[in-house]
């Protein structure tokens, strides 16, 4: 998805964008021919075959139970009921919930900071810095997790070695106390650049007249950022929160890689997605895994919708 597309799909609630929308003539709806569908046919085909059909199929299998002994029987919503009271599933959800509460604000804070700094045109090596912050996003998350896994290493990792040379010990990054923070750090490192670019693009789209007006009013750089830039790009920030929420609930690769170096810390249900995966591939509980996946999707749906509702209401008020 291109950066531009994301900005355009942002809820048009900010004052600057609202005026643009308002000018679209409402008028009588035109009758569409079938030609339009021809154009979207390739997309529709992929959408149906690769998304709707598998989705429908997994919902279908989530209503059954396949036993090693006894075969397959229809059980209705039993799998869902079991998942709701499954402590492994619930603790995984709670864990990603905690993760989101801390990691998302930190990551978006960094992204906003870098974007504003770049937009201020006061940086000397702006292009280099922009590239540098963005680069981790180009590193596949598997590679990133492997790399950080090495850095966190308790005996051979550089942090541990530096700490050892200084006569102290580094925190156990891979211990159960630190693991969530360690993964949070990896995710922040990976995605700050992406978020920064999105925010930066939004900042670039702000008409310069507003800055002139701010300057006339006597606003300095920080005041302009706080009172002009941030309010205007708020829809973009909301969109990024929304994306982070969806992405983070599906956390998988990072804990999966960490499981290879800290197996007992990660276990098999560190995040709901990891749990669903292990249910299928080690526990042979495909049906139950489908139910867990659907519940996870439902939780994400509810939370995302609440975020949209909440921010929309707030936007209306302001």
């Amino acid at each position: 998805m291109s950066v531009g597309a994301q900005i355009r799909t942002a809820p048009p609630s900010g004052s600057g964008l609202r005026t643009a929308r308002a000018s679209v003539p409402g008028g009588r709806r035109k009758k569409h021919g079938t030609k339009g569908y021809l154009f979207i046919a390739p997309f529709l085909l992929v959408f149906v075959v690769l998304l709707l059909v598998p989705l429908g199929y997994s919902f279908y299998i989530s209503l059954f139970r396949t036993q090693i002994v006894g075969g397959t029987t229809f059980v209705g919503l039993t799998n869902y009921r079991a998942a709701l009271s499954d402590t492994l599933f619930r603790s995984g959800l709670a864990r990603v919930g905690r993760f989101i509460l801390v990691q998302t604000p930190v990551m978006l804070g960094f992204a906003l900071f870098f974007a504003l700094a770049l937009d201020s045109a006061r940086l000397r090596f702006a292009r280099l810095i922009r590239l540098g912050v963005f680069l981790p996003y180009a590193v596949p998350s598997i590679v990133a997790a492997l790399m950080w896994g090495y850095l966190y290493g308790p005996s051979f990792g550089p942090f541990a070695q530096i700490a050892h040379d200084l006569g102290t010990t580094a925190p156990g990054f891979l211990s159960s106390q630190w693991m969530l923070a360690s993964i949070g750090n990896i995710v922040t490192w990976e995605f700050t650049g992406y978020n920064m670019i999105v925010i930066y693009a939004a900042l670039q789209a702000i008409p310069s007249e507003l800055y002139d007006a701010a300057a006339v009013d006597g606003a300095g750089g920080i005041r302009t950022a706080w009172s002009v830039k941030i309010p205007i790009i708020r829809p973009v920030l909301q969109l990024l929160v929304f994306f982070s929420l969806i992405g983070t609930f599906q956390l998988f690769s990072e804990p999966d890689i960490m499981a290879a170096i800290a197996p007992t810390v990660i276990g098999n249900a560190y995040t709901p997605n990891l749990y669903a995966y292990n249910l299928i591939f080690t526990d042979q509980e495909v049906n139950y895994a489908a139910a867990v996946s659907f519940l996870l999707a439902f939780v994400i749906l509810v939370l995302s919708y609440s975020v949209i509702l909440l921010t929309n209401r707030r936007n209306k008020r302001s």
């Binding site: 090693i68 492994l88 197996p263 007992t264 276990g267 292990n278 080690t282 526990d283 042979q284």
Partner: peptide
């Protein structure tokens, strides 16, 4: 069901 026994070892005794 060896794989389950192994993975549940990890989450109980292993932890």
């Amino acid at each position: 069901f060896n794989d389950f026994v192994a993975s549940s070892f990890l989450t109980t005794v292993g932890v």
